[in-house]
Design a protein around this nucleic acid. Structure first.
Lengths: 370, 370
DNA sequence: AGTTAGCACTCAAGATAAAAGAGTGCTAAA
DNA sequence: TTTAGCACTCTTTTATCTTGAGTGCTAACT
């Protein structure tokens, strides 16, 4: 294991450097280090140790005659082995719970609030991910007739997710036509992957629908869109402006690139989705494989209930991020969100613990009539 | 009318200053102005004119011995009376159309794409607003039974918008119970505003539902949420990073505040919703009444079809924004989006011009079973 | 052996001063 | 009314010097 070659004193010194640098944002010299509690040797000794730590790759020197700065590896080692638990006050925890619970029980809302809290409490950028559905195929279709020009197409995918879309028709149709449509879809289109929705399927459907063939094209397009769209989940960022206060991003370009990448969302989503375990993840600098994040770190943790990922909460900030605080904040937030979810499921009647009383994820749609 | 006191020459000089400053971002002096085409007098004359323009409030001087910079009023006058039409190339227009049309016909998608285009073409921050629905009351309820643990609640509000929510039940219910629920809701809750959803309504409903009273609480909560939530529409920002490249925002704080406000979204939404007419709007600096936008300008225009606002496209940038280009870009984008909408309605059979063949605004919901 | 005091050396950052340069306002002549 | 000319102002740039934090190394100390 890396780091095994480090003496206790080296570890202490490395830890002190990382923490000082996180706090001050400047290279740390041997003298200021000497005054810190927990270090009890002369500056010369520290210098020797620092030189060795640098050789081992844990520290870097911006230029001769400057103090040392932790390298990426230094941060990694710090997070893995040196970090101390950050103790949140009861008060803070209570406040988190209070704010989270003051919102509707809608998962979206809670995740967003948690992201805001993460950002506000750490002064970095908070992120919340709502996992995407994987609607590889639709296993069942339903229709709900509204009036002669409107109905709702309800689709259920292989994972049991319910997706509903409002469809407007260009000519009046009776309730039976719409019901028939569902039946035909359940015969023809069920279990077809997106790329199987070709012309032949359309023709066949149009034939079956007879006089109401005009419905087919828009419906198929809707289904196609549903199957292909938005698979990766949703990412919400809060407190982007917080990044500006860290002079770690020197060139505005660099920061601009980062913002651009964040806006794209897919890179971050990929990053977050790639992690398979339920633990808290810390990706430091180039570990994240997102090029533009070489000066940044990201900490995130999925919220898992009954084996299912309800969402991911995280924080993105500069390399020199207060990892102790961030880790604890994320843990705490995930814990609280999880508890809230549990409370909701506790409302379910006994013996049905796994059921969630109410869970609403379908966004509203609005459409103007005529 | 303000500006009537300005001689032609003053106008020309003001115009040249504004345009030079937009291009260069620096105070403009009399000498560099003299060399510009359209100006044919000596620098001394220009100096005299500039002094007067400053006295009238159209120009400002960062310090003695610096050139002049347009004041907010200067920009206003420029936009109102001096601006020249920016000619977009056929190529650019074709490209806009191509990119817009390559997307699904979903309004959300088109608006987002338009916002991205606005940002990419102008190098400022693009914005797209999807107007909110005003679901003051629900006028009709429908239910669609999925299985014994799931159904979809469909609500239609006074404006005819369709809103659907997926409801999970904690104990198995038959199709008839769910159908009955719709009937009862249509008797009891129809046309009730959010604040009328009180305990007495709940008790009454629970009585009517008899053995299935447990369904009532989550349903009422869902309806309440639907009635109250998210009324203000949705705002999407693209190219926020672009703001970093303009040194007009000197302090990172200022920019951070701006980003924070943008993130809040409600201020911008309010701003955009306040405008009643369908014209393109230009709000310069403090005109927008959003305090943090004193150094910024915002240009936006609603897309109106058949008397209904489908969305708003706009651009936000520094005060020293290329208004000519931005105005033209926004006009063009709105035009193209409108055309696309028209094309869709053109697919409707003759005599039904107002109908839109397909229009999907309902977001998908996902929910795990069991 | 490991630790520490001492010292020469390095190099960014800050201070000071001088020079440059862009731009102005004003006056007087065209 | 316009313009050339000029003195004046004030920022920006450049150069030079100084400061000081921090280092590495050596030699003495424990």
């Amino acid at each position: 294991m890396y780091g095994s070659e480090l003496s206790n004193r080296k570890k202490q010194i490395l830890k002190a450097i990382v923490e000082s640098h996180i706090e001050l944002g400047e290279p740390i010299g041997s003298k200021s280090l000497m005054q810190l509690p927990g270090i009890s040797c002369s500056s010369a000794t520290i210098r020797n140790e620092m030189a060795e730590l640098e050789e081992l790759g844990y520290l870097e020197q911006p230029h001769t005659s400057a103090g040392r700065v932790p390298s990426q590896l230094g941060y990694r080692f710090y997070v893995d082995q040196l970090i101390e638990h950050y103790a949140m006050t009861k008060n803070e925890i209570a406040q988190i719970d209070r704010i989270l619970k003051s919102k509707t029980a809608e998962l979206d809302q809670i995740l967003l609030t948690a992201s805001k809290l993460a950002s506000a409490m750490t002064n970095y950028t908070g992120l919340a991910v709502k996992p995407g559905r994987s609607s590889a195929v639709i296993t069942r279709f339903e229709t709900a007739y509204i009036d002669e020009y409107n109905f709702v197409l309800i689709m259920i995918n292989a994972s049991g997710n319910v997706i509903s879309k409002h469809i407007r028709m260009t000519s009046p149709k009776s309730q039976s036509v719409v019901a028939q449509l569902a039946a035909i879809l359940n015969e023809t289109v069920v279990n077809l992957p997106a790329d199987a929705l070709n012309m032949s399927v359309m023709l066949r459907l149009e034939e079956e629908m007879g006089a109401d063939a005009e419905l087919v094209a828009p419906i198929i397009k809707t289904i196609y869109t549903t199957l292909t769209e938005n698979d990766g989940g949703e990412l919400q960022l809060t407190g982007i402006g917080n990044l500006l206060q860290y002079r770690d991003y020197e060139s505005p370009e660099q920061l601009g690139d980062l913002l651009g990448t964040l806006e794209q969302k897919d890179e971050i989503l990929k990053l977050v989705s790639e992690k398979q375990n339920d633990d808290i993840s810390v990706l430091i600098g180039s570990e994240s494989s997102v090029k533009v994040m070489n000066n940044s770190a990201i900490v995130f943790k999925p919220i898992v209930r009954d084996g299912k990922t309800l969402g991911v909460i995280g924080v993105l900030g500069p390399l020199r991020m207060d990892y102790a605080k961030v880790l604890e904040t994320i843990e705490r937030l995930c814990g609280s969100v999880g508890e809230i979810m549990d409370e909701y499921s506790a409302l379910a009647p006994p013996g049905k613990k796994n059921n969630v009383t109410k869970e609403i994820d379908i966004k509203d749609g609005n459409n103007d009539p005529s």
